[in-house]
């Protein structure tokens, strides 16, 4: 595995405010790396230090072997960025934006297919100011890809999108990675992280408080699970309570809920099989990343958005 980003004890202050405090992590080529945390946690500051827009006060940052501060133009040729809260002139047309940005780079991809892919083809002659929030967002993502970058930085690309548009965006982000690009994405949505990210850094008050694969973080918290299923024959809860991994059983009609941990599912199904019962509509509930977040920070992540 090849490291494309190395952050070593990064620190950034704004006056008295500690925006980023002693943050270290590495990103491997080809992964989707998530950064989550509440508002003001320091996510944007961290990402902007990686692309050379913010000068770190402490620590070192290397991206593609370059120093983002000193080699900013060389680095900018090889990365793509979608920044939080940027705008363009109201009366610039979509095709003009793409032409303009194409002229900034040594190497570019044709932008017509990019527009197609991001569903903006019929908007190519529209003014930027007349695009919907989601369309602007997609235009900025297309701009981030115009130089065929090795790493793409996406800062809250799905904030403000409807659920359908978010899901479409996820597929496109996966498509970016499937082309071999590395993706660093900042988000507030835990479902997005669980869906997309290979690894995630959780940042709170400028500090890195967790860093791992989403599933590993969830497992670390607990391997508690709930299995819900229906049966076609009546069942005695005592028959299930004797399974070692089971902690509690509750039955309402034909619907049965079993709580436990470890290899719960396998042992449960084996026992039912011995009893000559075939369970159907099996649902497994595990703690979510949101639960991990709450247990780490003591707060919910979706506050004040």
């Amino acid at each position: 595995m090849e490291k494309v980003i190395e952050v070593n004890r990064l620190g950034k202050l704004y006056g008295d405010i500690v925006a980023v405090d002693d943050v270290s992590f590495e990103v491997q080529r080809g992964e989707i790396f998530g950064i989550v945390g509440p508002n003001g946690a320091g996510k944007t500051t961290t990402v902007e230090s990686l692309i050379g827009l913010k000068r770190p006060d402490k620590g070192e940052v290397q991206v593609l072997g370059l120093d983002p501060q000193n080699d900013r133009p060389a680095l900018a040729q090889r990365i793509g960025t979608q920044l939080q809260q940027t705008q363009l002139a109201e009366r610039i047309k979509v095709w003009e934006v793409l032409n303009l940005f194409s002229s900034f780079y040594d190497k570019t991809v044709p932008w017509e297919p990019l527009l197609d892919r991001w569903g903006l083809s019929e908007k190519r002659h529209a003014f930027f100011g007349k695009l919907s929030g989601g369309q602007k967002q997609r235009l900025f993502i297309a701009l981030a890809l115009i130089n065929d970058p090795e790493i793409v930085f996406l800062d809250e690309i799905t904030t403000g999108l409807d659920p359908q548009a978010r899901r479409e965006t996820w597929e496109l982000v996966q498509a970016i990675r499937d082309e071999g690009k590395t993706v660093v994405m900042v988000t507030h949505y835990m479902d997005e992280v669980e869906m997309l990210c290979d690894r995630v850094a959780i940042i709170d008050h400028g500090r890195l408080i967790a860093l791992d694969a989403p599933a590993a973080l969830v497992n670390q918290l607990s391997d508690e699970q709930r299995i819900i299923f229906t049966v076609d024959l009546p069942i005695n809860p005592a028959d299930l309570q004797t399974i070692e991994q089971v902690r509690a059983v509750s039955i309402s009609g034909s619907k049965i809920e079993v709580q436990g941990a470890g290899d719960l599912l396998v042992n449960l199904v084996l026992r039912l099989h011995e009893m000559g019962i075939t369970p159907s509509n099996i649902e497994i509930h595990r703690p979510s990343l949101e639960d991990v977040f709450i247990s780490l920070t003591g707060r919910s992540n979706v506050e004040n958005k």
């Binding site: 133009p73 960025t81 040594d106």
Partner: peptide
Amino acid sequence: NNREQKVLRRFMATPMP
């Protein structure tokens, strides 16, 4: 305006001087 709307900032994230 361009600075306020972060248009200049978006340009700064490109190799354009």
